[in-house]
Nucleic acid binder design. Structure first.
Length: 851
DNA sequence: GCAGCCTTGTTTTTT
DNA sequence: ACAAGGCTGC
């Protein structure tokens, strides 16, 4: 390494960071506190390894989200380019799930998996569970599909397959789950599909049980970095260990205080006991925080110190003290949202802080609605991180189901989804007749569809409709996957008419990675014809894919570096599907209501995203990293997008997301709302079955949220909140009490309203956050005030179970329950007209009614 | 077979 | 409050 390179890589690093970066061989554990420059350390380390002469293509980095992977890849490549280290390929930077999907396609033949396997999302999984329950005659009432799925998912995370699970199952519920598990696996197999957990499980078992594959991959990935190690589950642990066991060049980075995924199988001992598994491990602690002000850091540190199951860690920073954490207490969720919005706007206007530097976090998605409404009302730009919701839209899933059916002819789930979408007169009766026939003949549902004329009991119309559908799919498939272009990833299964022409025999290697196969570009000429057709009939936006289409016959196409385009553009296929299947006709019906417009724009957006995919495949620099351009790869990518992946960085909008989604991000201004018992910490952690470690995870979640903030942090809670349509009295989160008073300025909007006598009262804290020594209007004070008319001292006596009371809004009712909650009293009132309400005696301003 | 109504559940968190 | 799925009547 030259001195220059050394400077560029190490120059501005701290000693601890430098120690992590320059540790080349042998296991390394980097315990990186929040905001301690972890990503920077990792990217520098990759550059450093390259500077030591290690080929980048022998480096594997695994992150938690695709977005993090993309960013890390980008930063690393930029570093390597700056150091003229771009030879030796690029490192593989990926999420566990994407990596596994890729490896499973590459080694599919080794484990008897069809190369074109589909990946189920959670909704699909639940459908399959329901089908399995029905098949064995268990009612979904007694066996909540979500709970069953949870069990199965947990088993898979522990690498427990059906037989092992069944053997270990004790009790009626678990033995029943075992039966469901078995049928569920059969259904998956019949659909040539895997679920999320299978990606990890099958890869882990492949690596564990197949020495040849393991050796090959150990040779390929000689240096391994795994980020967010505290959130890895057992399957991921096994994958990491199998890959690393020969060279032991494994670098795990993470922070036990930020472990927030135990509920989905993450195993904290993976990181806590790293040194047990790798006794030679070097451990580096990164404790200096570069992100947050002293105040924010102190608040967060105090909070997390309340966890008992914890290795002590001292975060410190050289940053300024900054302003106090603001704690807002408001009357209800509407006031809370308005107040947050008001403050955000204020910072924007006074300090010129751009919208995309602000974020609002919440524990559960349901909270986002009221915030959205307030932001919309105020006219502020915002983006909500709920990316999967787009792919969960009906119309989007419908179009994708067609595409899946093209790639995977046995995809029963997709077939069931679209057989009557758009409507072609094939309802439940006809489909179940088809299903009976399929079961009897031992073939898949789509396969049976081809032979509709043999199915007993079908009407002539139904037979024709099935046949037409089969013909439609076949012809679309021919366009989407021209036989001459068929690589194994998109290849048809044996038996279909096209398969024999284009197939290449069994494959030990994925041709996607094989430059020799990447030279067939010109074979796809029929595609250009096809695209020209599509253009003529195309609805708005026909230009979108023309560019990409040209690429298929351009001279660059066959250049063999893996960036070649051997496949028809996905966007073009999609447009053809939309057209030929009749989605267009459906939306052309005159009734242009809001909903159908929205659906149209969603479909357009889907096409746009596909176009981006086509372009990125075209610009691919490395065949192992980038999408190959195949439809199959596209569907894989779509199946594995996460919420945060769709987050726009320079969006110019306030970002709304869950606390879980916030991991790994940072914003100058952060607000965490709904900090109430039952929400944060969540009811599931403190309620009936909650365990102490669950509360600790909630506390870590809160800690993660707080440490995202760089300059300003707002925490808020409301005294009432609409929950599932009912207004409920709320108690401030215990976490608020775990933050030292001197870090916080409290703003009690209820007290202010009463003190100022007008709702428009404006407090000065908005620009001079100052600590309040005394609690400003404690709950008891405000309680007194609110029921002042009714003798403060003996007030509760006037409200007993059974007394009649009057409420300003709800009218007259009778008290059904009285329970003390902290300093307050919760009262449940059965109102004559407004129904049953839960209120706080101290806030509800109830008046006694005589008689 | 399908449209519209009514019931029901839904709220953790996500790859 | 809201969505999705089930049921009833055409």
């Amino acid at each position: 390494m030259t001195a220059d390179n050394g400077d560029a890589i190490l120059g501005d690093l701290t000693l601890a960071q430098r120690a992590a970066v320059t540790h080349v061989d042998g296991p390394l554990l980097v315990l990186a506190g929040a905001g301690s420059g972890k990503t920077r350390t990792i990217t520098r380390r990759m550059a450093y390894l390259a500077a030591q002469g290690i080929a980048p293509m022998n480096i594997l980095a695994v992150t938690f989200t695709n977005k993090a992977a993309a960013e890390m890849r980008h930063r690393t490549l930029a570093l390597l380019a700056g150091l003229s280290l771009r030879h030796g390929g690029a490192p593989t930077v990926s999420t566990f799930h994407s990596l596994c999907a890729r490896l499973l396609r590459e080694f599919s033949s080794a484990i008897g998996l069809p190369a074109a396997f589909g990946i189920l999302d959670t909704a699909d999984q639940l459908k399959l569970i329901k089908q399995a329950l029905e098949k064995i005659g268990l009612s979904p009432e007694n066996f909540a599909p979500a709970r069953v799925l949870d069990k199965i998912s947990g088993a898979k995370n522990r690498l427990q397959r059906v037989d092992a699970f069944a053997a270990a199952a004790a009790g009626y519920f678990d033995t029943s789950v075992a039966r469901v598990y078995r049928v569920y696996e059969e259904l998956l197999g019949a659909s040539q599909a895997v679920d999320f957990d299978d990606l990890l499980l099958k890869t882990a078992l492949l690596l564990r049980d197949n020495a040849e594959v393991r050796n090959q991959l150990q040779g390929r990935f000689r240096y391994i970095l795994i980020d967010e190690y505290q959130d890895t589950n057992h399957a991921q642990f096994v994958i990491a260990h199998m890959l690393a066991m020969e060279h032991e060049n494994i670098c795990a980075t993470g922070d036990p205080d930020q472990s927030i995924y135990a509920w989905r199988g993450a195993n904290l001992s993976n990181i806590l006991e790293f040194e047990k598994f790798f006794p030679r491990a070097k451990v580096v602690l990164l404790e200096q925080n570069y992100r947050s002000t002293k105040t924010i850091l102190q608040a967060a540190s105090s909070l997390i110190s309340h966890n008992r199951q914890r290795k002590h860690k001292d975060l410190w920073t050289e940053n300024t003290i900054g302003s106090k954490v603001i704690h807002i207490c408001s009357a209800d969720e509407k006031q809370e949202a308005r107040e947050i919005v008001r403050r955000l706007r204020d910072w924007h206007e006074r300090e010129g802080i751009s919208w995309d530097k602000m974020a609002v976090f919440y524990r559960v998605n349901a909270i986002s609605r009221v915030l959205e409404e307030a932001l919309m009302e105020a006219g502020l730009p915002y983006q909500i991180v709920r990316g999967t919701e787009f792919y969960a839209r009906k119309e989007v899933k419908d179009v994708l189901a067609y595409l899946k059916l093209l790639v995977n002819p046995d995809d029963t789930l997709s077939f069931q989804r679209v057989i009557n979408v758009p409507a072609r007169g094939l309802g439940g009766t006809s489909v179940s007749r088809l299903a009976d026939y399929a079961a009897h003949a031992g073939i898949s549902l789509p396969a049976a569809c081809r032979r509709a004329e043999e199915v007993p009991g079908l009407t002539k119309r139904a037979v024709e409709a099935f046949q037409q559908f089969a013909a439609l799919i076949d012809s679309l498939r021919l366009l989407a996957i021209p036989p001459a272009c068929a690589s194994h990833a998109d290849r048809l299964p044996p038996g279909s008419p096209e398969a024999d022409r284009g197939a290449i025999g069994t494959n030990e290697f994925d041709p996607l990675y094989d430059p020799a196969l990447a030279t067939e570009a010109t074979a796809c000429t029929e595609l250009s014809n096809f695209s020209a057709d599509a253009d003529e009939n195309s609805p708005p936006g026909p230009a979108s894919h023309r560019d990409a289409t040209d690429q298929s016959v351009s001279p660059h196409a066959g250049e063999g570096s893996g960036g070649s385009r051997r496949f028809p553009p996905v966007a073009a296929i999609m447009e053809e599907v939309i057209h030929r299947a009749g989605f267009i006709r459906e939306s052309k019906t005159r009734t242009m209501d809001e909903e159908s417009l929205q659906r149209q724009s969603n479909i357009q957006e889907l096409i746009n995203v596909a176009t981006e995919y086509d372009l990125s495949a075209r610009h691919a620099q490395d065949g192992r990293q980038n999408p190959s351009g195949s439809l199959s790869d596209y569907l894989t990518q779509v199946a594995l997008v996460s919420d945060v992946d769709r987050l726009g960085e320079k969006s110019g909008a306030v970002t709304l997301m869950t606390l879980h989604a916030a991991k790994g991000l940072e914003f100058p201004v952060v607000a965490i709302v709904a900090m109430e018992e039952g929400i944060l910490p969540h009811e599931r952690a403190i309620g009936f079955q909650g365990r102490p470690q669950d509360v600790e995870e909630e506390r870590r979640l809160c800690f993660v949220g707080m440490t995202r903030a760089m300059q300003q942090l707002i925490l808020s809670h409301s005294c009432y909140r609409m929950i599932m349509g009912r207004s409920e009295g709320r108690v401030a989160s215990r976490f608020l009490k775990e933050i030292p008073d001197e870090c916080v300025v409290r703003i009690d909007l209820l007290a202010q309203e009463r003190l100022a006598g007008s709702p428009g009262y404006r407090d000065e804290t908005i620009d001079q956050a100052r600590p309040l020594r005394t609690k400003p209007a404690s709950y008891r004070d405000s309680a007194r005030r609110s029921i002042a008319a009714a003798e403060p001292a003996s007030a509760p006596a006037r409200f007993r179970k059974g007394s009649l009371v009057r409420h300003q809004k709800f009218g007259v009712g009778r008290i059904a329950e009285l329970t003390p909650v902290g300093e307050k009293t919760r009262v449940v009132v059965e109102f004559q007209s407004a129904g049953r309400r839960s209120l706080f005696l101290e806030h509800a301003r109830l008046e006694p009614v005589d008689g």
